[in-house]
Amino acid sequence: MIKKLVDYFGSSENTKQKNRLGYIALALVVVADFWVQISSYLEAKHAVHAEHAEHATHHVTYIWDKIPGWGAFYGFVSCVVIILVSKFIGHQGGIMKKEDYYD
């Protein structure tokens, strides 16, 4: 079973299917995040109405905690920033040297 699973991801045959699966997963996560955010917003509103303000202010929340899809956006930006900044430092900052540098 493990072998089949691993071979499915490794082989170059069903690239199209794998890509489609990937995009569906991405879309699902964003949709789920919207759904969770909106339902928690409604819940909080309800809690204030019922004067359970204590419940609503129990956790510190920041502005981005309330933006639906924030995780997706921040994850993508982080990934791109990390790759580009690191490679820039590595190449332009003289961090990367030939393998025999210390020999």
Binding site: G22, A25, L26, V29, V30, A32, D33, V36, G69, W70, G71, A72, F73, Y74, G75, F76, S78, C79, V80, I83
Partner: peptide, 13 residues
Amino acid sequence: TSALGILLFTGLG
């Protein structure tokens, strides 16, 4: 959902 969002979109990147 936010953890999954961060991880999967890192994968996209």
